[in-house]
């Protein structure tokens, strides 16, 4: 490979403090998105079980819209659209809010799919024991559905980390934006993006390893 990596190394060393803080932003954003997305996903999933047909229709419409449109378009809508009606939000708020709605829709769909793997008599047994709807959700449905959906939820967490790179398109300075700046200044485009890719690969690998540990800890025979 004809790259000039030593030159890039010098550049990276010079910018190390700001790069580390940019990487911190990426990690922070990924963690926030993932946690919010899990909470939101559970909430949306709970609403899909509603007795009210109207609520179910609205929720399914919401899920379908966010699964059917690009996240970046929604982020642009918030970033470029809202100021025209006098609402100015910081890129960070837009990123967190946009990803929250998007990831919640995906996670809810994973949970809905997993819900189909539950045994109806098990839920009925809980009902027969005298548990309320809320208790059944908290004590039986949620713990089982989260385990059944774990692989999908885990790959969504990985997706979140990678997708967080798109917020640089709304001028939020996370890791990719930081590296982008270095590429512009040094003209070492290939080398910079190559290293960028490596760093994301590393982040993803950390998540993969963490998930394996979690899996070992939480797996129950007969529930996967």
């Amino acid at each position: 490979m004809g790259g000039n990596f030593p030159a890039l190394l010098v550049q990276l060393q010079a910018d190390l403090p700001s790069l580390i803080s940019a990487l911190g932003e990426t990690v922070l954003l990924s963690v926030i998105i993932t946690i919010n997305g899990l909470i939101g996903g559970l909430l949306v999933f709970y609403l899909t079980l509603s007795n009210s047909g109207v609520v179910r229709k609205i929720i399914n419409g919401y899920i379908s819209i966010f699964i059917g449109t690009p996240l970046i378009v929604f982020l642009f809508l918030l970033y470029y659209g809202l100021p025209t009606i006098g609402i100015r939000l910081s890129p960070f708020v837009i990123a967190v809010f946009g990803f929250f709605l998007n990831v919640s829709a995906y996670n809810a769909r994973f949970l809905v799919t997993a819900y189909k793997g539950l045994l109806p008599t098990e839920l009925e047994a809980a009902k027969a024991q005298g548990f309320s709807r809320g208790q059944i959700f908290r004590l039986v449905t949620a713990p089982q559905v989260l385990r059944l959906a774990a692989p999908a939820l885990a790959s969504q967490a990985i997706q979140n980390t990678k997708d967080s790179s798109i917020v640089f398109l709304i001028q939020y300075t996370e890791f990719f934006a930081g590296m982008q700046e270095i590429a512009m200044r040094s003209f070492l485009f290939f080398e910079t993006y190559f290293v960028t890719a490596l760093v994301y690969l590393l982040l993803v690998s950390v998540i993969v390893l963490a998930m394996r540990r979690l899996e070992r800890r939480f797996t129950i025979p007969g529930l996967s």
Partner: peptide, 29 residues
């Protein structure tokens, strides 16, 4: 729900909670 608690129901397909141990199945309620 209060009345159901006074009626023990045993199903054809056992309907144990798969995510709980035997002991937790019995103690949950």
């Amino acid at each position: 729900r209060a009345l159901r608690q006074l009626i023990g129901f045993v199903f054809q397909n056992f309907a144990l909670y798969r995510h709980l141990t035997v002991l937790d199945n019995v103690t949950l309620a």
